[in-house]
Amino acid sequence: MRGQSKTQAALFSYIDLESRIPTSHPIRKVRGIVDQALIELEPAFSEMYSAVGRPSIPPEQLIRALLLQIFFTIRSERQLMERLDYDLMFRWFVGLSMDDKVWNHSVFSKNRDRLLASEIDELFFDAIKRQASARQLMSKDHFSVDGTLLEACASVKSFKPKDDGGDDDSDGQNFHGQKRSNETHQSSTDPDSKLFRKGKGKESKLCHMGHILTENRNGLIVEAEVTEAGTSREWDAGTTMLAKQGTRPGRTVGADKGYDTLEFVEGSRGLGITPHVAAKSLRSCIDKRTTGTEGYKISQVKRKRIEECFGWMKDIGLMRKLRHVGRAKVSWVFRFTAAAYNLTRLKVLIV
């Protein structure tokens, strides 16, 4: 028998929003982890907001909405608000009811900027990390480190001489054949970005450099930092992140050949950490006393998992082409995206 299509909409709905989300849906596990982390951030939220004045968007809902933007690769706040208006799962995750009005995209962006000017990214990242550590999902002895280029939200045409006071791009200036460097030129759009190229034969781009430290048990991100683009910045950021891990005997760190330098190897050993870097064929800073061990072989296998983090953060987490200007904002978004990646791993690891 053919069913009849009803064109008359029902006036009331007797099914609540909670029951529309399947109990086996992985978003429920993510929501539970996020809610526990937000409880820990309650004192920080209280200090950020005044007790009087017009109520703003609750910071808890802001953070949940930003997480959805990363999880589902939504490039703009306008698209995020549109999705939040009709998607019941989005409404449930953020904490809006069926009848709640969705915010204007400009209002959402203005309230988000308050979070970008705070240390909520570090607090939220640490809160997620503590939950993983409490379940013994993170190794405290064996790590991997690497860095990647983050293309800045600025055009190469904005890379102008530092002593040039004009900012008019309508003069049709031809840059062909001109020598430009970070010492003499600077981006007028994002002054914190640097002109850098990944290797010989590659084009130069305005970039920031993102660094992460992962643990080797489940590949969770332990630390995340953003510096200016530069080869030596990888070694400096690597030792800085390792120094935050405390002192324990028998610790190791795996890395690629780019870290086979005297600065990083000696810096790691100074922290009591054995550097399991991929050895160069000529003039390597490590010898067979390190490369001949079984632990070195394991570290070289485990360190390649760090590329999964960078791949997810760029392809899913909107970090391939940055949407924010300035190293402070880029650092905030980079660390928050790292926390989002850890959430995607925890929903699988937590039984």
Rank of each mutant, 00 (worst) to 15 (best):
Glu263Ser: 15
Ala279Asn: 01
Gly311His: 11
Lys288Gly: 13
Arg248Thr: 14
Lys257Gly: 13
Lys297Tyr: 10
Gln245Tyr: 01
Glu266Val: 07
Gly272Ile: 02
Thr291Ile: 01
Gly258Gln: 00
Ser268Ala: 15
Ile286Lys: 10
Gln300Tyr: 03
Arg269Pro: 00
Ser299Pro: 04
Ala278Leu: 08
Gly317Leu: 10
Met313Cys: 13
Gly272Pro: 04
Gly258Phe: 00
Gly254Ile: 00
Ala279Gly: 00
Lys280Asp: 04
Met313Glu: 11
Thr293Val: 09
Gly272Glu: 03
Ile306Trp: 07
Met313Asp: 08
His276Val: 03
Ile298Asp: 11
Thr247Tyr: 09
Cys285Phe: 11
Ala278Thr: 06
Gly311Arg: 15
Gln245Leu: 12
Gly270Leu: 06
Gly267Thr: 02
Ser268Arg: 05
Asp260Arg: 08
Glu266Gln: 12
Arg303Ile: 06
Lys314Tyr: 07
Pro249Glu: 11
Tyr296Asp: 07
Ala255Phe: 00
Arg269Asn: 11
Lys297Val: 06
Ala279Ser: 07
Lys302Arg: 14
Tyr259Asn: 00
Cys285Ile: 02
Val265Glu: 06
Gly254Asp: 00
Asp260Ser: 07
Asp287Ser: 15
Arg305His: 14
Lys280Leu: 12
Asp260His: 05
Ser281Tyr: 05
Gly292Val: 00
Arg320Pro: 04
Gln300Met: 15
Leu262Asn: 07
Arg248Asp: 12
Lys297His: 14
Tyr259Thr: 00
